[in-house]
Design a protein around this nucleic acid. Structure first.
Length: 512
RNA sequence: GUCCCCGUCGUCUAGCCCGGCCUAGGACACCGCCCUUUCACGGCGAUAACACGGGUUCAAAUCCCGUCGGGGACGCCA
């Protein structure tokens, strides 16, 4: 076939040598995640990665990461980087890493071997000539007429003359043997599957530029890397028959297959960047302030269930509980729309994980968000603020709007009417603020002292605590809804509190 | 068009394989009440689903058939 196989020797060295386990029943599984670098890390891909990872760790197996980059036209460096970014954020590791483009020699070598066995043929149909119109006579699309039956002599002669060709698998058909062969396998999720080989088209193994197709490269590598379980999206379910044929041609035992139900958008269609926008990229979740463990937790609940009504699960618990039997068969909707860009269950889980985090760690996670908001946070300040907001945020980025008044030197403008308590008037607000200044100036700035002093002052004014605290809260926070008052005052410090109360009085004056 | 997969509250799901314990359980969201210095957290409660039609059976969400609906695959993309 005139293929250059010079690199095969070096390529072979990279092959993992496994102890020739005589298919030991309890051999640790080897699974792989094989993204193609043609975009960012998709949430569907992320879930596939997570399920593979969970399966590997649960069974004490090996997680392989393989970059399926055989489409030179569409692959980009930037995309590969962004996928690694996403994977690193998830904080799940892998044990071995490969790049398909570095294994081309092996793919071609195996393609040649398949051709030599007579299991494939050259197709000289010009590239793109078959792009449309497969629908002529029924069955005609299964192969390009004239190519499959071409004599070896003519095929060799044409190839020798330099005519470009694609290599196609010669799928066994009824007319060849008289009986239609039935292909079958048992899917780890969908159960027994079968299909007559006649219904499988003569798919390409090699493109006319000599590059392997996905089907070939993927199977050659899976066989060579001794992948024992292929866990992937359900969109590959019917491709599996082709893969079975390739493994057979390779003389390799086919791995176990398990297909995962698809993640779909509210419109029911498979999640896609083009149709559904940035919500399908995991970096969108990261940047919005999802915790990776919450994101992982959420994705696991889509198409899988521990069947014990538990939903908040740590990585260790997920690893412990994960089995293929727990995976269901129907597509799962990731719920989002223009107003709510994220699935509300994901948001809730994130809030749960935020509250479960030790304060110092949450604090560390929050810092970048404050920095991005130009708050110039010091670790000490953030550490003091964190416990006051952690029950009030659902996404990390919510911290910016929940805690802004702790960081800015000048409060954003607010409506002075907010200073007036329930069932009160401006005069009452003024009296409260006046008293508050005296109290704050004279009291120790710790929670208990402030509590006692301010409650006492409220009583003396003949006001309920709620009425008395509102003007003070609005004066120091610039809004009605805020963390508990005394803690807030302490973190803000006496000078800031006094200054803001004075400013509030000025705002109130015109209303009095 | 051909083939394949799926169908329980709005959404994620348990139950289905091994019919009866299902007047169908949990969770998110929504609504109401309680707690409370606001917001939030927490607690309690309410609304809400077996796609439809036939069978089989004393009994069906669970088994069988059909219909409808949704999705996927069919590339020299992965």
């Amino acid at each position: 076939m005139g293929l250059d196989c010079g690199a095969i020797a070096s390529c072979r060295k990279a092959i993992v040598t496994m102890p020739d386990s005589v298919s030991a029943p309890l051999a640790p599984p080897r699974v792989r995640f094989a993204p193609s670098p043609t975009g960012f890390l998709h949430v569907g891909s992320a879930r596939t990665f997570i399920f593979n990872w969970l399966y590997a760790r649960h069974n004490h197996g090996t997680m392989v990461l393989r970059l399926d980059d055989t489409d030179v036209e569409r692959n980009t460096e930037a995309s590969a980087r962004s996928i690694f970014d996403g994977l690193r954020w998830l904080a799940l590791d892998w044990d071995e890493e490969y790049k398909q483009s570095e294994r081309l020699a092996l793919h071609r070598h195996q393609a040649e071997a398949i051709f030599a066995k007579g299991l494939a043929y050259r197709d000289f149909t010009p590239a793109h000539a078959t792009d449309d119109d497969n629908s002529s006579a029924q069955g005609a699309w299964l192969f390009n007429p004239g190519m499959r039956e071409m004599s070896r002599e003519e095929s060799d002669r044409r190839a020798a003359s330099g005519e470009p060709f694609a290599l196609r698998y010669r799928v066994p058909r009824g007319p060849d043997s008289g009986v239609a062969r039935i292909l079958h396998f048992v899917d780890g999720v969908y159960g027994a599957q079968s299909r007559p080989a006649d219904e499988v088209e003569d798919f390409a193994l090699l493109r006319s530029d000599g590059m392997p197709t996905y089907h070939l490269a993927s199977c050659v590598d899976d066989a060579d890397l001794r992948i024992s379980h292929i866990i992937r999206g359900q969109d590959h379910l019917t491709n599996t028959y082709k893969h079975l044929l390739i493994f057979e041609a390779l003389g390799a035992a086919a791995p176990q297959f398990a297909h995962l139900p698809l993640l779909v958008a509210p419109d029911g269609a498979k999640l896609s960047k083009r149709k559904h926008g940035p919500v399908v990229s995991v970096t969108t979740y990261r940047d919005a302030g999802f915790l990776p463990q919450a994101f992982v937790n959420f994705l696991c609940l889509l198409g899988w269930s521990p069947k014990n009504d538990r939903e908040f699960l740590t990585l260790d618990e997920l690893t412990d509980l994960f089995t293929l039997e727990g995976v269901n068969r129907s597509n799962a909707v990731v719920n989002f729309n223009e107003e709510l860009p994220f699935d509300e269950k994901a948001v809730w889980l994130n809030a749960e994980h935020i509250r479960a985090l030790p304060v110092d760690e949450l604090s560390r996670r929050l810092e970048p968000f404050f920095e991005q908001a130009a708050f110039h946070p010091t670790p000490e300040k953030v550490a003091a603020v964190t416990p006051l907001i952690r029950e009030r945020i659902k996404l990390l980025r919510d911290a910016v709007s929940a805690a802004d008044f702790f960081f800015v030197s000048e409060l954003a403008p607010y409506d002075p009417a907010e200073l007036i308590p329930q069932k009160g008037d401006a005069a009452m607000a003024l009296r409260v603020l006046e008293t508050a200044q005296q109290v704050l100036a004279a009291t120790n700035f710790d929670h208990d002292s402030l509590d006692a002093a301010l409650r006492g002052a409220a009583a003396q004014l003949g006001l309920k605590a709620g009425q008395a605290f509102q003007p003070i809260r609005v004066a120091v926070c610039g809004r009605k809804n805020a963390p508990p008052l005394f803690e807030t005052l302490v973190v803000l410090g006496r000078d800031t509190c006094l200054a803001r109360i004075r400013q509030a009085e000025e705002k109130l004056a015109p209303l009095g």
